[in-house]
């Protein structure tokens, strides 16, 4: 039986780490919208990414499904904004996604920040979408959220999130209308409400 002690230790350690990984359901209270009462944005839409996670393409797919005029340019710069009337930014840091570009994390932060600042300056609404939920809760993604939320017009995210308490506090602080959904597909309704 002595030979199984390391196995037992390994399982115990895994269980111990599990308690930290489990999502804490308690979160800060925030008033959310099931969808916006009036449209806040117009087409043409620039769909871009903050963090280069591949799931940014999901919003392009949803936009196409809703027949919204949009361009999917995950690496768009602030200078590209002149031809669009709204910005949809999908947040989520992907190491592999970023390695496809010639930028590093710092430059990606700078690009995203500059883009939303330029949009704010030109009164172009910014819709921030986070569909990674519990799966991307690294410091880089959280940093991106922190830097973009102050310039955001509308936030759509998932209910299930480890940082949800901090996130809700941040959204509340910046008076960002928020919609939280259970499933990615449920984004279609609030997203549509922002335009129609």
């Amino acid at each position: 039986m002595k030979q199984f002690i390391p196995t037992f230790i390994g399982i115990c350690l895994a269980c111990f780490l599990l308690t930290f990984e489990m999502v804490n359901p308690s979160s800060g209270k925030i008033n959310t919208y099931p969808n916006l009462p009036v449209p806040i944005a117009m087409e043409d839409i620039l769909i871009t990414s903050a963090g280069q996670a591949v799931e940014s393409a999901v919003l392009k797919s949803i936009a196409d499904n809703l027949n919204l005029e949009s361009d999917y340019r995950p690496r768009a710069l602030a200078t590209d904004l002149y031809e669009y009337k709204s910005v949809v930014m999908i947040v989520g840091y992907s190491k592999n996604g970023l390695s496809q570009t010639l930028r590093n994390v710092k430059e990606e932060f700078h690009r995203a920040k500059e883009l939303v600042q330029e949009a704010e300056k030109n009164s172009i609404p910014v819709i921030l979408v986070d569909i990674s939920g519990v799966l991307r809760e690294d410091e880089t993604t959280w940093g991106l959220l922190e830097s973009i939320i102050p310039h955001t017009t509308y936030y759509i995210g998932l209910k299930n999130s480890k940082h949800s308490r901090d996130l809700r506090m941040l959204l509340k602080e910046h008076h960002v209308p928020t919609t939280l959904v259970n499933e990615i597909k449920e984004i279609e309704v609030p997203f549509n409400s922002a335009y129609r």
Binding site: L18, V54, E55, V58, K95, N96, I131, L135, K185
Partner: peptide
């Protein structure tokens, strides 16, 4: 439970979720 948190697995799961 914190299993499969690496980048590509996460991307795959999100894509599959959608």
């Amino acid at each position: 439970f914190g299993i499969g948190t690496n980048d590509i697995a996460t991307s795959l799961k999100i894509a599959d979720h959608y």
